[in-house]
Write a protein that binds this DNA or RNA. Structure first.
Lengths: 131, 131
DNA sequence: ACAGAGGTTCACACTGGCGTGAACGCAGAG
DNA sequence: CTCTGCGTTCACGCCAGTGTGAACCTCTGT
């Protein structure tokens, strides 16, 4: 199974698949003509990566999760730990974004938004807070 | 005012300030010895950038906002437009993160988290959804 | 006058997660 | 046999900086 087939089956772009090989996440065989040759197991691993990345895990976390997935003697405790700290990081990120959004929303409401140059948004960003 | 002084005054790392010059966001004078020499106006601009970046605007959006800030004949309409679409983008990002968090939270609750290798989190990521 | 500490300069490499493009090889159709 | 469309490799670009290192400048103490 060559790279474009693997791309269709896994849902990842071919470029991404080659990148994952470059950084050692997967090691497909090579056919006689030099083409990458993906096994069903490789596809399974690619799908795993796609899903883990979709859940926001970093490449490094994916590496750990893959290692745990392949480790028959793993403790589910370890997986849970990775997932927990990732959830915490996501929560932190959400809080940051919500703070930004609240500030911006307030500024947008304060801005009349017409042809005049007066603009509370710019004034606030510039630190020229009057009133 | 040299770069480390400008860093203290603006709250940005010196390295970031030099980077902003490299990409054309600010153009400080040079002293006779070749050192960068920041005016009060430059500091003001750096603080503007810090605040705009803190609100999540991209460098390119910051460039636009700076241009509008310096344009005495600007329409507040234009600024509001940039801010609005940024708020939309933030909202989109928050929704994505919340979806991730919900999925992960569900999986974490399903995982017993002990020394046994059985782990619903990995099974889900791998697509081995039983039950 | 000179040593040493610390500030400043530039240039380059590196990050994550790919995207893009060149230059080439290989497979199947006509 | 040639054409087209895949595949391959390599190299560079992107964002928004951060880290490293050599060389140069400035200040302070003796």
């Amino acid at each position: 199974m060559n790279v474009s087939h693997a791309a269709r089956r896994s849902g990842l772009p071919a470029k991404t698949i080659r990148y994952y090989e470059e950084i050692g996440l997967i090691r497909p065989d090579r056919a006689a003509n030099g083409y990458r040759d993906y096994s069903a197991d490789d596809i399974h691993r690619l799908a795993f990566l796609k899903r883990a990345r979709g859940l926001g895990f970093s490449i490094d976390e994916c590496r750990q999760l893959m290692a745990l997935y392949g480790d028959r003697g793993r403790a589910s405790h370890d997986v849970r730990q990775i997932a927990r700290s990732h959830v915490d990081a996501i929560g932190e990120k959400i809080r940051e974004l919500e703070t930004m959004r609240a500030t911006l929303t307030r500024l947008i409401h304060a801005c009349h938004g017409d042809e005049r140059p007066d603009c509370p948004i710019l004034d606030d960003i510039a630190g020229d807070v009057r009133h």
